[in-house]
């Protein structure tokens, strides 16, 4: 039986047509029909989401069930009566052997899977107050603010969809970035840094067990950028603030910078359970050494060096330069040959 209150409510809606006069709000409490105010518990209206449950198919329970007589197994034979090994093809070579998955559906362990993030979405999140542009934006911030719903195994790639939407300068640290996105962010006065993340480290970063940017090979500029994330307090601890001044000032001595980096690393190790790994494969190192990618290892590339670890730069010709070692040896053998009798 439906609840009586439902009937009452529909009846009252017919009896008292809503009139919006100026006096109605004042009289509202008295105009309300004297309906019985029962405490209705929410318990009676709880239900799981539709589709969360599937009713189990009850096989062999009579013709009305639709799965009655043969219970969906067809007529006669081994399949109707018992079990047939999975993939068994009557003794013929199995389907998965003769016709294995190819192309897109095939499992590819070398596939690079990254979560794309676009500039317009970042701006929208900043406008909604869900991302803080004054702090560096990493995958942790993006995931925590639900700008990204989880990060795929190889990290985040920054893309430039609706690049003109971005108006706020941001400091963003991602796995990869498109050239257009880099140029747009830098034209606004922000910075892009790409750095290496391993699949395991991404999982740890998202659950707060690893710092999102600071690793052993992080350049001092990146460390200085991400120092504010290390302390939640408004006034950072003295060792952090001194490290920040040492890292940011241009004229600070190399030793001071090194000690600052060491102190920051010790802070990171105290606070986080795991260290953030650095790139180890040649492909990754070369990507992050490239200044065009704004890679975090690009400061290691010396003047005249290329990011590639494999191809050497062409030798610069020195006019009248040093003679080769081989030439000297050749000449010596030639001279000794001339002095020989036989």
């Amino acid at each position: 039986m439906p609840p009586r209150l439902q009937v009452l409510r529909t009846a009252t809606s017919f009896l008292c047509p809503p009139k919006s006069t100026a006096i109605t709000p004042l009289l509202a409490p008295f105009l309300l029909p004297a309906q019985q105010l029962r405490a209705a518990s929410i318990l009676s209206s709880l239900s799981d989401t539709k589709g969360a449950y599937h009713k189990k198919i009850r096989r062999g329970r009579g013709p009305a069930s639709g799965k009655g007589k043969t219970a969906g197994r067809g007529q006669k034979g081994q399949h109707a009566h018992g079990k047939v090994p999975a993939g068994f093809n009557g003794g013929q070579t199995k389907e998965e052997i003769t016709n294995p998955p190819r192309g897109r559906n095939k499992f590819n362990p070398f596939k690079v899977e990254m979560s794309p993030i676009n500039l317009d979405k970042i701006q929208s999140w900043i406008d909604q107050g869900r991302l803080d542009p004054s702090k560096p934006i990493t995958m942790k911030e993006l995931n925590d603010s639900r700008c990204l719903h989880g990060v795929k195994k190889d990290g985040v790639k920054l893309l430039a969809r609706n690049a003109e939407a971005l108006t706020t300068p941001i400091n963003i640290i991602v796995s990869r970035a498109s050239a257009e996105a880099i140029s747009k962010i830098e034209s606004l006065g922000g910075t892009v840094t790409t750095r290496f993340y391993s699949p395991e480290s991404i999982r740890r970063i998202l659950c707060g067990k690893t710092h999102p940017t600071i690793s052993l090979q992080s350049p001092p500029s990146l460390i200085a950028l991400s120092l504010p994330t290390l302390s939640a307090k408004k006034t950072p601890p003295p060792e952090l603030s001194s490290a920040l001044t040492a890292l940011t000032s241009a004229e600070a001595a190399q030793e001071a910078k090194d000690t600052a980096v060491a102190s920051v690393m010790s802070q990171v190790l105290q606070r986080y359970q795991f260290r953030l790994p650095d790139a180890t494969s040649r492909k990754d190192i070369e990507y992050y050494r490239d200044p065009a990618h704004r890679g975090y290892l690009s400061h290691l590339v010396k003047e005249g060096e290329s990011p590639s670890l494999f191809f050497k730069m062409p030798r610069t010709v020195v006019p009248g330069g040093v003679k080769r070692k081989g030439d000297v040896k050749k000449k010596a053998t030639k001279a000794s040959a001339e002095n020989k009798l036989w």
């Binding site: 609840p3 209150l5 809503p18 509202a28 409490p29 105010l37 029962r38 209705a40 929410i42």
Partner: peptide, 15 residues
């Protein structure tokens, strides 16, 4: 407030 909800449902009613 008491006057604001004109049509009330059971579960969302604030007594």
């Amino acid at each position: 407030s008491i006057s604001s909800p004109f049509i009330r449902t059971l579960t969302t009613t604030t007594s």
